[in-house]
Design a protein around this nucleic acid. Sequence first.
DNA 1: AAGATATTCAACCAAAAAGTTGATTATTAT
DNA 2: ATAATAATCAACTTTTTGGTTGAATATCTT
Lengths: 113, 113
Amino acid sequence: MPSIDHTLSALADPTRRAIIAQLSTGEQRVSDLAEPHHMSLNAVSKHIKVLEEAGLLVRRKEGRTHYLSFDPEGLTEAANWIERTRAMWFRRLDALEAALLADDANQEKRGKR
Amino acid sequence: MPSIDHTLSALADPTRRAIIAQLSTGEQRVSDLAEPHHMSLNAVSKHIKVLEEAGLLVRRKEGRTHYLSFDPEGLTEAANWIERTRAMWFRRLDALEAALLADDANQEKRGKR
DNA sequence: AAGATATTCAACCAAAAAGTTGATTATTAT
DNA sequence: ATAATAATCAACTTTTTGGTTGAATATCTT
């Protein structure tokens, strides 16, 4: 069970986000994923491992080659946290607005009196 | 201009997410934010700085005390990245499904022949 | 003017992250 | 059987991170 900590820190690295983007067209081998990045194959292999442990990638082995694909399920917890946080904020804003409106109404009354 | 890297790695720390949660009820002083965490005030002060630099918090100084509040705007870039990524995946799934349906149709034809 | 309070700055430390190179394991091709 | 290919493992280095303590700065209170 990958935690939200893992997911978010996995996503915080640009190379890893690039790898995810590379998988938009479907599964890719480790070497294919590594090719565009100017760093060793080993380094990319490690990035893949991090993404995998974060639940963002799944690996399918076929002989000596490993095929990686993106698992969107890995994103949901993080996405939910962000949306919840925004929502809590908008509730706050709404409350504020309501308070302002109530105040306006009071002003109105006082003005008419 | 805080990058998405900054935002995501800021959010990857549980203490920092907790701080954001603490701000759901409105602005708080540094010491108030620090109080529930079992670590030094200095440590929390640093976490706040990280969140601030990531564009997730804003600081208002009033005399010697600093009031922090959450800035939901800081979340949008990260939220967009995640949503875009999910969307790109669902497009892929849709394409796949379409292909399968087309295949089914072919099977159907062949069956009837 | 002193002292208390709110906060940051600076220097340090230990652990984790991101990269490297070299060796190892498995699998496939000649 | 040998050699080539696909990938990981292991050991090491450098940088970054998350924490500490102690000193400094700024403001408020008496």
